[in-house]
Design a protein around this nucleic acid. Structure first.
Lengths: 162, 162
DNA sequence: TTAAATAGGGATATTTCATATCCTTAATAA
DNA sequence: TTATTAAGGATATGAAATATCCCTATTTAA
């Protein structure tokens, strides 16, 4: 059970967009080049963010993406779910219904206890991601990345932001 | 990102094995029939449990599986990891290394902040599953399943346990 | 002693999904 | 007007989940 690589891509791209000055856009091309990713496929991930309303887009030269909300109002869960979907990791196929001892007209009272427990674990995962804001990530990155590299990267992005 | 259906199967099978009298075994055939599952493929899930040391097995007629430990000493995480593996759901491919501004001799100080956060969420999921014992499940099932069906199922299993 | 039943595991097929590329269209800025 | 962009459809590729089949060694029951 592994998350799509697009989740990693989307998170890093959002971190870059979070550093963009107001009203400026950054193109798929620039984001792909900066992260060394296939442009066409990264585009699908960015489209997912757009469909989820997390980013705004505009067309034409100097077009691209920018965050639809301030980084403090975007959670990891927003971004992960935009790309990966909102489905639970555990799918209950109700195999208890196949119990040969079960009366034919028997009707389940509620969700299977196995599923209930697995879904609670899913919710713990979601709760953790819901508790981390994109602004938390940019703060962590600011501490993690040497000032020189941080500055250079910022300039690199600015040169390409429309 | 969806768990293998074998995870669901393994959990339900362990719940049945937890109700088995001391020293008795239950075969793949019986477990498959009880849950309406393909015997050959269910066998792979049970082999995973065996390889993880969660169940003991014996060959021959009246052979099959039984728990290697009491249900109170088996957690959901034990069972889920036996089937699904212990890998993290988030795989960090370190795309920050592709940053064109990065000096060639630059060496990362530690794991990527994005990965660190995603792995914390993974750990929250694991912690939740680690906190649920197989005995907790059987208690929940005892409350969930009507006494009549519970009794019939127990007898059905006993008839087939070697 | 023999025959039947079992777990284990290898080989292989099928299906589904992630990954990836290509192309067309409509919108936008220079 | 021209170049650039996001959006999305079509399609190809690869890996993994799902599933079946078959062989072997072991063990029990008859």
């Amino acid at each position: 059970m592994i998350l799509k690589s697009q989740v990693e891509w989307a998170l890093h791209c959002c971190a870059i967009l979070a550093g963009l000055p107001e009203k400026r856009y950054l193109s798929t091309k620039a984001l792909a080049e900066f992260h060394g990713l296939p442009k066409e496929y990264l585009s699908k991930a960015l489209q997912s963010l757009s469909q989820a309303g997390l980013v705004d887009t505009t067309l034409g030269p100097s077009g691209g993406y920018r965050l639809a909300r301030p980084p403090a109002e975007l959670t990891f869960l927003d971004i992960v779910e935009a790309v990966e979907g909102k489905a639970q990791t555990f799918v209950c196929t109700n195999i208890r219904e196949n119990n040969p001892c079960r009366p034919r007209d028997y009707c389940e009272s509620g969700p299977c206890p196995v599923a209930r427990i697995m879904w609670e674990a899913d919710e713990a995962w979601r709760a953790k991601l819901r508790g981390v804001k994109l602004s938390d990530l940019t703060e962590a990155l600011a501490l993690d990345i040497p000032a020189e590299l941080w500055k250079k990267s910022f300039e690199w992005v600015l040169e390409r932001a429309g």
